[in-house]
């Protein structure tokens, strides 16, 4: 079975991509496919604490993120270069997994069977 790399590179609010990435990751895990979730680009804004989606009339995205382990999406990574470019410190975020440098990111893409980008 091919491994899936789901790249979540959209911000948590303003469009539905971030939620769709999580839906897809959870569906893949339910099918017992090897799945990895990577937060890259503006997707790292999903990891900011103290989110409140109520003003936008949508679900609080961080609650969805916290449900990932319950749905057995356990392999999560964060792109270090994306944090650096946005001036985000690791200790200011709720990290779902290790922060990877550029070399580790290249290896992640190289080893992935199929890549889905959201």
């Amino acid at each position: 079975m091919k491994s899936l790399l789901i790249v979540s590179q959209s911000p948590p609010y303003g469009r539905s991509s971030a939620a769709e990435a999580l839906d897809t990751a959870m569906a893949a895990a339910a099918l017992e496919m090897p799945v990895t979730l990577l937060f890259d680009g503006d997707g790292v804004f999903q990891l900011l604490p103290n989110q409140d989606g109520t003003a936008l009339g949508v679900r609080n995205h961080s609650q969805l993120l916290e449900a990932l382990p319950a749905f057995e999406v356990e392999r999560c990574f964060v792109a270090g270069p994306a944090l650096a470019r946005r001036g985000l410190a690791e200790n200011a975020l709720r990290l779902p997994g290790p922060v990877l440098d550029a070399a580790a990111l290249r290896a992640l893409y190289r080893d992935a069977g199929l890549v889905l980008t959201y």
Binding site: Q9, D23, A27, A28, L31, M33, L114, L116, T117, Y118
Partner: peptide
């Protein structure tokens, strides 16, 4: 999603069209 992910397993590559940065 289950149907799509299962059928995508037979593909050599998956291409995404749509997320503009």
């Amino acid at each position: 999603l289950a149907t799509f992910l299962s059928e995508a397993q037979s593909a050599d590559r998956l291409l995404t069209f749509g997320v503009s940065l």
